[in-house]
């Protein structure tokens, strides 16, 4: 008779309990590691000498380069530049923000840079000039304050980007 066995079929049902045990252990280990290794990055660059005396300062009308001078106390001074604009035209946007509780007043810096971004929409470049005694943590705080804006639109948090191209430079001595 073709097929033989007359339709008798036993489904194989392996015992998965041991495998479940191993997988559960793996999950706990991986979840613990996942929490411990949450690392992100912040892109930045240093100034370079270009051939022919060109510089990277903004040229378009809707673009400026923001320069943030950072003091060890946490004070931040903001100035703007554009190769096609007179310094007097950009002077109204200059501002200094004193520290708040010994740290950078990130909120005030972020508010000011957002108002600049709204005026000069194509701006992306920011030059951060820290004093020698400024800590790395403070530089990262300033980079955070200049990178994006947190807004709530339609009940959802959105993060429009602001000055994402960061150059970290020292004062010319």
């Amino acid at each position: 008779m073709a097929g033989g066995g007359g339709g008798q079929f036993d489904a194989t049902s392996p015992d998965l309990t041991a495998l479940m045990d191993v997988l559960s252990n793996l999950i706990f280990f991986l979840m613990a590691s996942f929490g411990a290794a949450v690392i992100a990055i912040l892109p930045a660059s240093v100034p370079t000498i270009s051939e022919g005396g060109e510089n990277d300062v903004a040229r378009e009308e809707n673009q400026v380069t923001a320069t943030l001078s950072l003091k060890a106390t946490g004070a931040v001074s903001v100035t703007l530049s554009n190769n096609q604009m007179l310094p007097e035209d950009l002077k109204p946007y200059a501002a200094t923000f004193p520290p708040k509780e010994g740290k950078v007043n990130a909120r005030a810096v972020n508010d000011h840079l957002w108002s600049i971004k709204e005026k000069f929409r194509e701006s992306k470049d920011v030059v951060i000039i820290p004093e020698n005694d400024v800590t790395y943590e403070m530089i990262v705080d300033v980079m955070d304050a200049s990178r994006e804006r947190q807004m709530i639109v339609g009940g959802k948090s959105v993060y429009p980007s602001m000055f994402t191209k960061v150059v970290v430079s020292s004062l010319v001595q």
Binding site: V38, I39, A40, I41, L42, P43, A44, S45, V46, T48, V140, M143, V168
Partner: peptide, 16 residues
């Protein structure tokens, strides 16, 4: 020093 060795771009490692 990194820039002098030809590396002018950086990624700062930070914790989220």
């Amino acid at each position: 020093t990194c820039a002098r060795a030809g590396f002018t771009r950086f990624r700062f490692a930070v914790s989220k």
